[in-house]
Design a binder for these strands. Structure first.
Lengths: 196, 196
DNA sequence: TTATATACGGAGGGTTCCTCCGTTTAGCAA
DNA sequence: TTGCTAAACGGAGGAACCCTCCGTATATAA
């Protein structure tokens, strides 16, 4: 399935089509039913057999990753746009707000997000690179501009940001997350002879 | 099982004993095997039948809550002690550090912690009161002493703190959480005519 | 058109959760 | 101490979900 290289054939059209149906079905299933939607339900929504689902995605995590890699691509692109149009620290702040809005809108599964950011799993490496890279760019820009403290670690901040979205089910979580971003940004201001 | 009130009998000694065995077995099972330890395994460890486990704890969440209510009691008590011996903002900082250490040592299950703090579920109401109460006391003390900004919301800070422990499996998560607490505390300092 | 590799669907088995019912046992009253 | 009965027990069996394997279908290349 990696393209025609020598003796290999290109994937059949029906397989490509079914894979796409499964990703769309999974995306809808997670959004409507939640993280515990059964794989049988996803297969049913895609009008394919359960064996087909497993053939394309050997584990539940595999289909989760496929669904969210696309979503996270858009977040990474937002970072680039914000950086091009705003002062560095303000771009960082705005991006974090976009992140929170995005999580709220797309209802990304908490455990998947943790794995994507944690980076311990090979499966989520591609998604992890996108989102970790975006945060790194933003932080480096703000540090370079002298707008946030130089000891700010992008990985720390991404963990915090993901943590602010954690439990994204309560009624006021979004407003709470945005308030926390404000406090965090205040804490990131360059220190003026505080504690050495 | 709520004590002798009128015609009701007090619980039998064997039931009380088995309930205790189940809680201890669950605690050990979560710590050794992780959040996915089977209920059959917990029953086996406690040397009781699976029906007995269900009789005492109708759902997995019920036994999780019972295990962790005790753990969280100790965290709540730590807040009281720290408040009695340290300046207000320093007590808050230290308590958050103790919280992180506690999560690391006891390996509290992330989803349970989220539910305890979120407060949406009746099941976790007792545990939630403990931990939300502790944070409220600490924040009120620090606000009253003029050591942190008056708009600091205890529920926000608790969400942040829990979020910092999220994904508490990576190699450097603990140090990262402690760094984030530092940044958060910096952000909580009373504002000096910054943004109005 | 033919041959063959790719891809399919779903039956069946494994695991875990959960209930129900026959049996046991603890506690209370006489 | 004895008898009664409600509380509590254990585990068999069924449901739900995950996962694999194999007979069949189908897309693609020659």
């Amino acid at each position: 399935m990696s393209g025609p290289s020598g003796a290999e054939r290109k994937p059949r059209a029906d397989a490509l089509r079914n894979r796409e149906l499964l990703i769309e079905a999974a995306k809808a299933g997670f959004a409507e039913t939640g993280p515990d939607v059964t794989l049988e339900e996803i297969a049913r929504r895609a009008s394919v057999g359960i064996g087909t689902l497993y053939r394309h995605f050997p584990t539940r995590d595999a289909i989760v990753e496929a669904v969210y890699r696309r979503e996270l691509q858009q977040l990474a692109e937002a970072a680039t746009r914000l950086q091009a149009s705003l002062p560095a620290a303000e771009a960082l702040r705005q991006w974090m707000g976009v992140f929170v809005d995005y999580i709220a809108t797309k209802k990304i599964i908490a455990s998947a997000l943790g794995s994507i950011v944690g980076g311990a799993s090979e499966l989520y490496a591609a998604s992890g690179v996108l989102i970790n890279g975006a945060m790194s760019e933003l932080v480096q820009g703000a540090v370079g501009a002298g707008e946030i403290r130089p000891d700010a670690d992008p990985a720390d901040l991404l963990r915090a940001l993901v943590g602010f979205t954690y439990g994204a089910t309560g009624p006021g979580w979004q407003a709470s997350a945005l308030r926390l971003i404000d406090i965090l940004m205040d804490g990131l201001r360059p220190q003026v002879q505080r504690r050495g």
